[in-house]
């Protein structure tokens, strides 16, 4: 109604600001290359030709944190690596999201010992957890789509 009716055939669509921005954010979310261990190989498989992730917007994997929006923590995080992880997370500009891929990143998986962080959410806030050891590429894509849904439902007041 309203403006659209008056504009007629001029090709104008009105949409809420939230919807537009959230839609744009989900459509081209570039992940940062943070493959640590075995899950990194499945992440590389998900990026490769068989289970193509670029159809979901993850065209490139940026090595620099300054140019990426999504950090997929793929693999186990050792205690020596934890400060590095936190520093890279801090270096990413807003808006940023974190997917914790695999069992080791979510809860340290098989390894319940002195050397690993028991779950990467000890140091960074996680948005989506993907279970599996390693998760199939389809599971990772499902995690990415879940994150898309979460971003789609973000409100203006909670934007970072």
């Amino acid at each position: 109604m309203g403006i659209e009716q008056k504009a007629g055939d001029m090709g104008i669509v009105t949409v809420g600001l939230e919807q537009a921005v959230n839609w744009a954010r989900t459509r081209a979310m570039w992940p940062m290359l943070f493959g640590l261990a075995c899950c990194a190989i499945e992440m590389m498989s998900a990026q490769a030709a068989h289970f193509d992730m670029s159809r979901f917007g993850m065209e490139l994997m940026r090595a620099s944190p300054r140019q990426s929006e999504l950090m997929i923590v793929a693999g186990r995080v050792a205690r020596k690596m934890a400060p590095v992880l936190r520093r890279l997370y801090d270096q990413m500009p807003d808006p940023k999201w974190v997917i914790s891929m695999g069992d080791c990143a979510s809860c340290s998986g098989v390894f319940n010992n002195y050397a690993l962080l028991q779950g990467v959410d000890e140091v960074v806030p996680v948005d989506v957890y993907v279970a599996g050891c390693p998760p199939r590429p389809e599971a990772l894509i499902h995690g990415v789509l879940t994150l898309d849904e979460k971003v789609r439902n973000e409100k203006l007041t909670t934007w970072k």
Binding site: N112, N113, Q118
Partner: peptide, 14 residues
């Protein structure tokens, strides 16, 4: 020195 037998595993209770 972690691999000594008197060093605890660091097991976290689920």
């Amino acid at each position: 020195h972690p691999l000594r037998k008197d060093y605890p595993l660091g097991y976290e209770e689920p």
